[in-house]
Design a protein around this nucleic acid. Sequence first.
DNA 1: GGGTGGCGATAAGCGCCACCTATCAACAAT
DNA 2: ATTGTTGATAGGTGGCGCTTATCGCCACCC
Lengths: 311, 311
Amino acid sequence: MAGGRRASRHILELRHMRYFLAVAEELNFGQAAEKLGIAQPNLSQQIKALEEIVGATLFDRTQRSVKLTAAGEFFREEARQTMAHAGTALAKARRAGRGEIGHIAVGYVGSATYTGALITIMAAFREEFPQVEIDLAELEMQEQLARIAAGTLDIGFVRPPVELPLGIGTSLILQEDIVLAMPARHPLAEADVTLADLRDEPFLTPRHAANVSFRKYTTQACEAVGFTPQLGRQAADFVTIISMVAIGFGVALVPQSCQALHLPGVRYKRLQDVSVKADLSLASRRSEPSPIVRAFLQKGAQYRASLKRQE
Amino acid sequence: MAGGRRASRHILELRHMRYFLAVAEELNFGQAAEKLGIAQPNLSQQIKALEEIVGATLFDRTQRSVKLTAAGEFFREEARQTMAHAGTALAKARRAGRGEIGHIAVGYVGSATYTGALITIMAAFREEFPQVEIDLAELEMQEQLARIAAGTLDIGFVRPPVELPLGIGTSLILQEDIVLAMPARHPLAEADVTLADLRDEPFLTPRHAANVSFRKYTTQACEAVGFTPQLGRQAADFVTIISMVAIGFGVALVPQSCQALHLPGVRYKRLQDVSVKADLSLASRRSEPSPIVRAFLQKGAQYRASLKRQE
DNA sequence: GGGTGGCGATAAGCGCCACCTATCAACAAT
DNA sequence: ATTGTTGATAGGTGGCGCTTATCGCCACCC
């Protein structure tokens, strides 16, 4: 009954606010129109439409001067904030679209640390995209693959070969030589040894299925020189494996970067008759449209390219 | 050179955000379109236009499901806030337009307090418009009129008649009887007196020009019974005037509501031969489009109407 | 496998409204 | 009176936001 507000068929748009703010600033329709790049009559009409939408006059036009009403003052403040928000909406979405902000979860196998690849790639990524929040976690390879498939992880530093879940792919970033870790007090510790000399030693490997990563490398390398290795204990990571070597549980083929682990009682040896190389790769969802993940993968590719140039 | 963002000729509007939020909520173009009351193809086009404006895809349409991209997530949050702000912009301006929020500055002459009109009107206004901030100040009448003209005061409780500055008008809210204040130890203090009996007494009045307010009432009443009053001291307010009566400086014609001032040594008397009434009015700018001031004036009119009903 | 139903994208056309130019009306300044 | 500057009004046009009709794609289902 009492209400009866004229139901303007128009709907509030940002255009109205842009125009309103221009007039509120200039306090002059003509100049405001010029600043907006439109004709003055249109501006008059749009402001009128806005006033119908609001249901209150926003400007006092006293024929020689334009000034804000009380309602206009309130609207001005809110309109300003609205426009600001609209602007940041655009800016944030654009930056996110270019991968400059957002979030990425990265996992890595422990041995990735020693290669330098992890540190180098992460540093390069952080430098270009400082606004991107990075979740970093050391995880076993299978755990990484499961999480990538589940969507809780974006990137994994893994050591192929390994059977990949559907929709997940890898890209190589590093190949490194494989060296032998053997106990220092082993009879052959001071001699020139070949892999063939070690046919009776137990070989320690990561805890994996037969055809995966260093379990595969180990059998592959041994069979290449004519014997099937006797598998010893298995462990989750190379630190443990090399520790077990030091204790005397056997020998192990490890990535050469693991030589950075200077454990007492361990001797590393480059073997002439081992030509297998160890891979380090980035795993990620194949159907990954996120520009931020793409950017990370690109950093990995750049790292690989920089290595090739050095050769 | 490197930039090359496709300069979409479209401009961001609230419409895009409304549509986007609907799709982001439903995750289904068809249902979102229905909720918006538009056809689905248009929605597809508008979202596409929005994505061109933003310069990034906001939804992953995988043929069977729609979900937000990272950029979409960011945009969603900002768009929500933008819409919220736009809503409050409308709401605030509307309420201001109806006078429900804002600010009003009210002045009053001291004697307005005793009538009850000031308190009653202020209370009624506050109850209906609790959000309106009220500046209240006791001011002499001339000061009020000057400030109203200058725009620093919106409403004044004044006692006409008085010469009004250009563009300022008054509306009556109260008429009250005039009574005599005389010293208690005056020879006639205990007798039945008429105004005519007091022709030799000095009459104390407020400090005004000749034709203003109680200076006018006083001369008018006296001349009505056949003499020209001898004017005594003048003071700024009735408290002072009545105090001076108590001291014995003379007598005074005062509004009957001033009887609330029970000063020792003063006797109030209703005089049969005084028919002049004292006005109390609201002064305000005539060309006052502010709905909040109009609402206040209306409260004044209602108060006057309620008095008339009681008669 | 072909059918069916639900999805979003595309095609083509229509009508409104945001824009334009031209002009008016009101006031100030000279 | 004249002129300049202001915002409002009149009338016309083109773009775009809307529509309906249709397609292409996938999942599901006898």
